[in-house]
């Protein structure tokens, strides 16, 4: 990664907010993650998670879809291409701050 890539221009306040960064980190690992799994990993209530997910969905970073598993309807979350790019740019921006390239 060149120095020009390691800039803070990718810093994203929407993603950086508490829990939303962790949501993006979780979703970046796999294609889709169940809402309940994300909730468990973050250790927050469903309503709190819903609020953060809504912000990310409105920003175009996350998509959600409903699927049936074990006869129950569940919600699955995934990063959009834009969301993944924004998350990775944000991580690069954080690294740039840490490395003093800000």
């Amino acid at each position: 990664m060149s120095d020009t890539d390691l800039t803070t221009s990718g810093f994203n306040d929407t993603i950086h907010a508490p829990n939303r960064l962790r949501i993006c980190a979780l979703l970046d690992r796999g294609e889709e993650v169940e809402f309940a799994v994300v909730q468990k990993q973050l250790g927050v209530s469903a309503s709190v998670l819903s609020k953060h997910v809504s912000v990310l969905v409105n920003a175009g970073y996350v998509r959600q879809h409903r699927a049936v598993r074990d006869t129950r309807q569940r919600v699955w979350l995934s990063l959009t291409d834009e969301g993944r790019a924004a998350y990775r740019a944000h991580i690069a921006a954080l690294r740039a701050i840490v490395e003093g390239k800000a």
Partner: peptide, 8 residues
């Protein structure tokens, strides 16, 4: 809605 800062 999207917030992006260039000066964190």
């Amino acid at each position: 809605e999207r917030e992006q800062n260039t000066s964190p």
